[in-house]
């Protein structure tokens, strides 16, 4: 991994404060905000969700909703603009790795905890799985002890 500014960096987010920290750090490593791909993964819906059964809710409508909200939130609350926002449907770590492969990412920057500690203990974190499965360097952004 060279120290030069990067062209394609993936920063997975889960709408928590930690993942915003990861975005900020990733921004220092890229040439331009548009080189940073902020990925948010939403899970599949139950086929019996009323809107799914009737066809009113599709992955497309969900993706559009999330993208709009995420963009707005990053802009209003964190003054982050001009980022590439990508919303994928499926299992978090698989989709993140898949997307990183697709764009031939040079680096993935991720916050360690996607869940509370109890769930982490039982299920493992998304970050752990991305570290295991990614085909590029992964930077896990840990917070310094306060």
């Amino acid at each position: 991994m060279s120290w030069l500014p990067k062209q394609r960096v993936v920063a997975p987010v889960d709408m928590s404060a930690d993942s915003v920290e990861a975005i900020r750090l990733a921004l220092q490593l890229v040439e331009d905000p548009s080189s940073l791909h902020v990925v948010h993964v939403i899970p599949e819906l139950s086929p019996m969700e009323p809107g799914v059964a009737s066809g009113d809710i599709t992955d497309e409508t969900r993706r559009a909703h999330i993208e709009k909200q995420l963009r707005q939130k990053l802009k209003d609350e964190h003054r982050l603009e001009g980022l590439n926002i990508v919303v994928r449907v499926g299992v978090s770590h698989r989709q993140i790795v898949k997307y990183a492969d697709e764009i031939k990412a040079e680096l993935v920057v991720i916050a360690p905890h996607g869940r509370s500690s109890v769930a982490n203990l039982l299920l493992g974190s998304t970050a752990e799985r991305v570290v295991h499965n990614a085909h590029c360097p992964v930077l896990v952004v840990k917070k310094p002890r306060s």
């Binding site: 889960d14 899970p43 996607g114 869940r115 509370s116 109890v118 769930a119």
Partner: peptide
């Protein structure tokens, strides 16, 4: 199954948002 899932998601989300859906 869907109704039950909503109960499961509600309960499990106390362990962190999204836990319910992931453990469904």
């Amino acid at each position: 199954a869907y109704y039950g899932e909503r109960g499961w998601i509600y309960l499990l989300d106390h362990f962190g948002e999204g836990t319910g859906l992931r453990t469904l």
